[in-house]
């Protein structure tokens, strides 16, 4: 299995991780626990990063990432391959973030406050500039769609088309939301 991965990577196939991931997904869907373990291990860091960007602190991100992983484990059998696996994972993650924040407005507010008062281990790394952190909190306070569009495009570095697929909207609409976000934040930035 590992050798397979190495072999594929060395074959200079453009974007081998995608095909490799697809193979893992298929095997996991056939009930291969081994493949699923490898798959989720491969995805975890990205899920965690996404969660962190959306909610803004490590503790929530860890919890969300874990829930996302569990959800993937439960639902992977039903993943139908109509969208890319990565888009699917994004959708689960964003939903989870939304559920999480909706269910625990207070909790996450506390956590945010906590994160601000007690500088966690990761604090120095991210808080490189006061403006940076201001920007983050401003973006996170945007309406859901605007926030998702901005973060998908700028934080996750996806194209408008990819963001559109994940959000389930049309490509121009993504641009529109980003534009709206700019307008909303004009005073703050």
């Amino acid at each position: 299995m590992q050798a397979n991965l190495v072999g594929l990577t060395a074959a200079s196939i453009p974007d081998p991780p995608v095909t490799f991931t697809e193979a893992l997904v298929r095997r996991a869907q056939n009930g291969d626990g081994e493949a699923f373990a490898e798959l989720i291990e491969e995805q975890y860091d990205r899920i965690y990063r996404t969660a962190w960007r959306w909610c803004g602190n490590g503790h929530d991100a860890e919890d969300i990432a874990q829930d996302v992983c569990v959800r993937i484990g439960q639902a992977i059998h039903g993943f139908d391959g109509r969208s890319a696996f990565s888009s699917w994972v994004y959708r689960i993650t964003l939903n989870m973030v939304r559920d999480w924040q909706r269910a625990g407005q207070r909790r996450s507010a506390h956590a945010d406050a906590y994160a601000e008062i007690v500088p966690t281990a990761e604090a120095p790394a991210q808080e490189d500039a006061a403006t940076g952190s201001q920007l983050w909190s401003a973006v996170r306070s945007l309406p859901d769609k605007q926030r998702d569009a901005v973060l998908l495009v700028y934080a996750e570095g996806l194209s408008h088309a990819e963001a559109a697929a994940i959000m389930g909207i049309k490509e121009p609409t993504v641009s529109f939301h980003v534009h709206e976000a700019r307008k909303t934040l004009r005073g703050l930035l």
């Binding site: 975890y44 860091d45 965690y48 990063r49 490590g58 874990q66 569990v70 959800r71 990761e122 991210q126």
Partner: peptide, 19 residues
């Protein structure tokens, strides 16, 4: 963003495998 803590990562992976 900063990296996840390794033990949180392991916990999540294990939970996922179980699920």
């Amino acid at each position: 963003p900063p990296p996840p803590r390794p033990d949180a990562r392991l916990k999540a992976l294990a939970a996922a495998r179980e699920a």
